[in-house]
Amino acid sequence: MAVVQTGNGFRKTGEGGLNVQRTAFTEIPMIDLAGMMSRDAAVRREVGEAVRRACTEVGFFYVCHHGVDPQSLARCYAVSKAFFMLSEAEKCEIHIRNSENHRGYGPLLEENTNPDSQGDLHEAFDLAGDIPQTDPDVLAGKRLYGPNLWPRHPAGFRDAVLECRSALVGLGHTIFRAFALALGLEEDYFQPLVEKPCAHMRILRYPPQKGVINEKQIGIGAHSDYECFTILHQNGESALQVLNAAGTWIEAPPIPGTFVINVGDMMARWTNDLFCSTLHRVINRSGKERYSIPLFFGPNFDTIISPLPSCQDADHPPLYPPVKAGDYVLSRFDETYVYRQPTAETV
């Protein structure tokens, strides 16, 4: 049984091999977020109860009726495909290494989510809130805040990407309200802690993998995400695989009109492992390019992540020491990205 090192320790990855059990997508719960827009508190609590079941039993769920305009997503994908078609030299003008706060372009194999692998087969554009250098938090050296790096081409790239990110951040606030209800907290419990969230968005392009596939070099190796939760939109063929409790890889195919939500390591820590941060990976065997847009939603940089009182008792003592949210994410970036290694060269 193989293991993967995550931010919360070593995790089993199930049996080796690339085969997955093909099950109906209902194996991963579908939650209708329309209830979170209801004026009826009881209806909103029902959504919270469904989220609690999903987060404790699976760690993944789909959401529908989420309120994100599909045209915003379409515009983001259109300009992103044009960006990734640029020459490598032009894309590398904004190489992520040239950013002080982890923004910009990451070429193939720049990232290695599973330390036991040989690099991830995707390229990426990373961004977050476009915060000026004069912002007090930027001046204070909080390195998850700051300006983005933007390419010279294509036209309209910046506006389309920021419009999409804004919509996903809005969805993130709704999900945090549902998380609060799921944990038996006041619905607005997390709101003061996410007024300036470290909401890191990526646009990912996966080339197809053909023929014999090396298990140690796939789209993204087995890993768990760093932040509180991930909002993922999938555009294309099925490639995302989720590890179930029995150690079997289960497909999480794209479903029109939905997002995939999964718990991250930070939320697992915050809930004292009540919510499970589930291992997952990406293998693009479709024969086509695959694109996806994940938003990794975390709280304000200075938020202290320590097991919530409602998630501990005499039989469940705190499993993790307190840690500042921003410092935790930065430590995970340091372990994952080639450019952040001491031997990395300047581009």
Rank of each mutant, 00 (worst) to 15 (best):
K288I: 11
V3I: 13
T258C: 12
L73T: 07
A74R: 15
F259E: 08
D135N: 12
I220P: 02
L168I: 06
A246Q: 15
E289R: 12
W270H: 00
N244D: 15
F190K: 04
G221V: 08
D334A: 14
I31E: 11
L168R: 11
E90R: 08
S306T: 01
Y206M: 06
G247M: 10
S310G: 04
D188R: 02
G287Q: 14
A182F: 11
I261Y: 13
G221L: 08
V260R: 05
E27W: 11
E49I: 10
R22W: 14
I304M: 05
K142F: 12
F61I: 08
N300G: 03
A50F: 08
T23P: 05
E93F: 00
L168G: 07
E227K: 06
K91G: 02
A178T: 01
R39I: 10
D116G: 12
H233D: 02
I31T: 07
L108G: 00
G146F: 02
G48Q: 00
K210S: 14
E163G: 14
L193H: 06
I28N: 04
L127T: 00
R44G: 10
C311Y: 04
L185S: 09
H173N: 14
G219S: 00
A325T: 00
I231H: 12
A246H: 13
P318M: 02
F157V: 02
T336I: 09
G326R: 02
E123W: 12
E88Y: 04
N300M: 04
D120C: 03
L171M: 02
H122R: 15
L240F: 06
A78S: 15
R158A: 11
R103W: 09
P307I: 00
H280F: 06
M37E: 15
